[in-house]
């Protein structure tokens, strides 16, 4: 019953060879099917993670610089807009001033022309009246004194008279 306690009694050296061979085969199979791909993948993953960290760092920097650019572009465009508006205002002011000045000049010239026309009209009317009055006076005078005065003498007479009237009227 205690024979199993004698170690040597149950040692079969063929088993050593069997187990050694089987173990080597198992190691080889595991190496092909699992060990190599797993380690490869773990290595790849480690590489990928470090790459990802690097690229994340890089893209963060890029984003920061882009934000910086955008900020400055925004400030620039604001300034530009202000300049444009200012320019437009200034131009508008200038244009308005020009138009108003033009209108004033036009109005002035119109007024001057009108005054000239009026003066002309008045002169013409005065001339006509003068002639008519002269003719009428001659007729009246000729009828009154029944004597033919020369028209020219008459006219000179009337003129001096009317001039006297005009002066009195103007003053």
């Amino acid at each position: 019953m205690f024979s199993h306690l004698v170690v040597g009694a149950s040692l079969f050296f063929g088993d050593i060879i069997f187990y050694a061979v089987c173990f080597l085969i198992l190691m080889w199979l595991i190496k092909i099917f699992a060990w190599k791909p797993i380690n490869q993948m773990m290595q790849d993953r480690a590489d990928k993670i470090s790459n990802d960290i690097d690229s994340a760092e890089k893209s963060r920097d890029e984003a920061a610089s882009l934000a910086q650019q955008r900020q400055s572009a925004l400030a620039n465009s604001r300034q530009e807009a202000t300049t444009i508006v200012d320019n437009a205002k200034k131009q508008g002011q200038q244009q308005r001033d020009g138009i108003v000045a033009q209108a004033q000049t036009d109005a002035q010239s119109l007024k001057v022309n009108a005054q000239k026309d009026i003066e002309q009209e008045r002169q013409d009317a005065l001339q006509n009246v003068r002639n008519d009055v002269a003719d009428l006076s001659i007729e009246i005078a000729s009828k009154i004194i029944q004597k033919e005065l020369s028209a020219d003498d008459q006219k000179a007479l009337i003129d001096s008279y009317i001039e006297g009237l005009g002066k009195q009227h103007e003053s």
Binding site: F12, F13, G14, I17, Y19
Partner: peptide, 18 residues
């Protein structure tokens, strides 16, 4: 060499399971 069939069967089962 003496081979132990029990060990061979059990060992094979273990190898295959692993």
């Amino acid at each position: 060499l003496t081979f132990n069939v029990t060990n061979m069967i059990s060992g094979l089962i273990a190898f295959v399971l692993v």
